[in-house]
Computed example of a mutant assay.
Amino acid sequence: MRAVQIAQHAADLTRATAFYSALLGAEPVASFDPPGLVFFDLDGQRLLLDAGAPSALHYYQVDDLDAVIERLRAAGATVESPPHVIFTHRDGSLGPAGTEEMQAFVRDTEGNIVGLIAFRLNRSQPA
């Protein structure tokens, strides 16, 4: 089994589409208006923006968390929690072994929280 689609609340589809296009670095793959649906492709999983959907907390892995946060901040996004270490992966069960998991949280244009994740080498481990 694998997840196929995440539905996210978007009261203003134009505004939300611009935010997620900037965040994901991609334009939508489909839009239907009416009824007011916008789809993005996330490597085979769909992100659906829909006024009728509830708010969902979803996380995206990024390569450079600081750069993404600065880009979103410059575009006017609210950073709810700046990048910080939340977990050290000693084995590979939840993330790459020997890395620290960094997370940050931003608020999208519709008031939803979005999590961003990056992995970096564990600085406390000997080289």
Results as ranks from 00 to 15, higher is better:
residue 4 V to L: 15
residue 4 V to M: 14
residue 6 I to Q: 05
residue 6 I to M: 12
residue 8 Q to R: 12
residue 10 A to C: 12
residue 11 A to K: 12
residue 13 L to G: 12
residue 15 R to N: 13
residue 16 A to Q: 07
residue 19 F to D: 11
residue 20 Y to I: 10
residue 21 S to V: 06
residue 22 A to G: 13
residue 23 L to M: 10
residue 25 G to Q: 09
residue 26 A to L: 06
residue 27 E to T: 05
residue 28 P to T: 01
residue 28 P to W: 04
residue 29 V to T: 14
residue 31 S to M: 11
residue 32 F to G: 03
residue 32 F to V: 09
residue 33 D to Q: 14
residue 34 P to W: 07
residue 35 P to C: 10
residue 36 G to A: 10
residue 36 G to W: 05
residue 40 F to L: 12
residue 41 D to E: 09
residue 42 L to W: 06
residue 42 L to Y: 05
residue 42 L to G: 09
residue 43 D to H: 10
residue 43 D to N: 15
residue 44 G to R: 11
residue 44 G to F: 08
residue 48 L to H: 07
residue 48 L to N: 10
residue 49 L to M: 11
residue 49 L to F: 07
residue 50 D to T: 00
residue 50 D to S: 14
residue 51 A to V: 10
residue 51 A to I: 08
residue 52 G to E: 15
residue 53 A to R: 10
residue 53 A to D: 12
residue 54 P to K: 15
residue 54 P to T: 09
residue 54 P to W: 02
residue 55 S to T: 15
residue 55 S to G: 15
residue 56 A to H: 09
residue 56 A to S: 14
residue 56 A to P: 02
residue 59 Y to D: 14
residue 59 Y to V: 13
residue 59 Y to H: 12
residue 60 Y to R: 11
residue 61 Q to R: 12
residue 63 D to A: 15
residue 63 D to F: 09
residue 65 L to R: 02
residue 69 I to F: 07
residue 71 R to F: 04
residue 73 R to K: 13
residue 75 A to D: 15
residue 77 A to G: 04
residue 77 A to I: 07
residue 78 T to C: 07
residue 79 V to F: 04
residue 79 V to K: 07
residue 79 V to Y: 06
residue 79 V to A: 06
residue 80 E to H: 01
residue 80 E to F: 04
residue 81 S to E: 15
residue 83 P to I: 03
residue 84 H to T: 09
residue 86 I to L: 06
residue 86 I to E: 13
residue 87 F to T: 07
residue 92 G to D: 14
residue 94 L to Q: 06
residue 95 G to I: 02
residue 95 G to M: 09
residue 98 G to W: 03
residue 99 T to M: 04
residue 99 T to E: 05
residue 101 E to S: 11
residue 104 A to V: 02
residue 104 A to S: 04
residue 107 R to H: 00
residue 108 D to S: 03
residue 109 T to F: 01
residue 109 T to E: 10
residue 110 E to K: 00
residue 112 N to C: 07
residue 113 I to D: 02
residue 114 V to N: 02
residue 115 G to P: 02
residue 115 G to T: 00
residue 119 F to T: 00
residue 122 N to E: 09
residue 122 N to Q: 02
residue 123 R to Q: 11
residue 124 S to N: 03
residue 124 S to E: 13
residue 125 Q to W: 00
residue 127 A to T: 01
